[in-house]
Write a protein that binds this DNA or RNA. Structure first.
Lengths: 219, 219
DNA sequence: CCTACCGATCGGTAGG
DNA sequence: CCTACCGATCGGTAGG
């Protein structure tokens, strides 16, 4: 196996992810990235060809990271029957590990919507398609509410989750001097549950942890 | 009354809003704004002191616009009993008139979170405080679900609405080749309704338009 | 509200 | 992977 870290290339990518995420592409000079990575500017250009080449490499790395991790994550969260709560919570915990990646993606949508559409659609369609299909199946089985719009629901929940991770701490300041990102996360999960699952027919919920109905398995 | 439009200052503000919204602050030169407004660069600087002065003036204008319009909007949407649906739909229609303002605000949160926290909190607290308070009252009256987190719910729905307006067309591309922003809007309203209001006790919904329960009036 | 101009920084190259 | 350097553009000023 290749060694884990700290090649020059990887250091550049790490610093670029952090700086592009917090200050944006146009707001970050390659000089600043080179300084942060402890190299000179021409060295950076040597490795990535141009500033735009570095940007594309950063996005590729983020996409690869997600494409590698998300399936593992879904399997882990689905152990013992896939639960909507566990799946969403696992997603959150995963993204919250580095909000820089979330901010980076949000910025790309704002800065280059056309490229985002063309590029990330192919990369994420398999994932989102799986989710929307699972909703359709669940509806056919009578487990999920029939008036859910599968595609709109999927993009809404993913976007909201990404937004919470990227800027939830700051948007939370709109309602509280001490914003609670975890509360936003919990509330989104509650919203998603309540608006997706059929109303539980049990008139009296259990005292400790009411068992959430399972998500349908994909065929 | 002052005349409606087309002073040089207003043209600069309009073009800056559009360009900052689509390319970001760092990604927009004052030269580009001056060109779009049909003036020279020193003229722009004469009017706003500096690029940062222009940025602050643009944000002030957006905030003023919202502060002026939102109360009218709430009154209009509340005519004949405030309904959650009507209120949310009115908000959407309002913001969708110019997504540039939504993108601008989203970018400010990303670029200058500290300033956003310090500055916009005071400007929007009255509005959000009103909403959270209305939720608390509704819960006490038994009209709203007791497990709603009023603050988290408010910031979540506002953020999601803003996100849909700003980039919904592009994030929608993740699930569909022809993104439907209206469907995302409708789904968010459904999510908010379903997760906020008490489950309707009527076992058979009316055929045409089931009357939505009213939002509680503020005291 | 404009012409003319400035120092600083930008992304990138030559050459080793 | 670095030193030395380039033309272009940046935000901003002088002066009228």
């Amino acid at each position: 196996m290749a060694q884990q870290v700290d090649t020059v290339r990887e250091r550049i990518l790490a610093e670029a992810t952090r700086l592009f995420g917090s200050h944006g592409y146009a707001g970050t000079s390659i000089q600043a990235i080179a300084d942060a990575a402890g190299i000179t500017k021409p060295t950076l250009v040597y490795h990535f060809g141009s500033k735009d080449g570095l940007r594309r490499a950063v996005i590729d790395a983020v996409m690869d990271h997600w494409r590698n991790q998300v399936p593992k994550l879904m399997v882990a969260a689905s152990a013992g029957g896939p639960r909507l709560d566990a799946l969403l919570a696992a997603f959150f915990d995963f993204f919250r590990q580095d909000p820089d990646r979330a901010r980076l993606l949000l910025r790309e949508v704002l800065d280059r919507p056309q490229e985002f559409t063309d590029r990330l659609r192919h990369g994420l369609q398999p994932l989102t398609g799986l989710l929307t299909h699972a909703i359709v199946v669940g509806q056919q089985q009578g487990l999920l509410q029939p008036n859910v719009d599968p595609e709109a629901f999927t993009v809404l929940v993913i976007s909201a989750a990404l937004g919470i991770v990227a800027v939830g701490q700051h948007t939370g300041a709109l309602v509280s001097p001490e914003p609670d990102v975890a509360a936003q996360q919990a509330e989104l999960i509650r919203l998603a549950r309540t608006a997706l699952l059929m109303p539980s027919p049990s008139p009296s919920p259990g005292p400790s942890s009411p068992p959430p109905p399972p998500m349908p398995e994909e065929p």
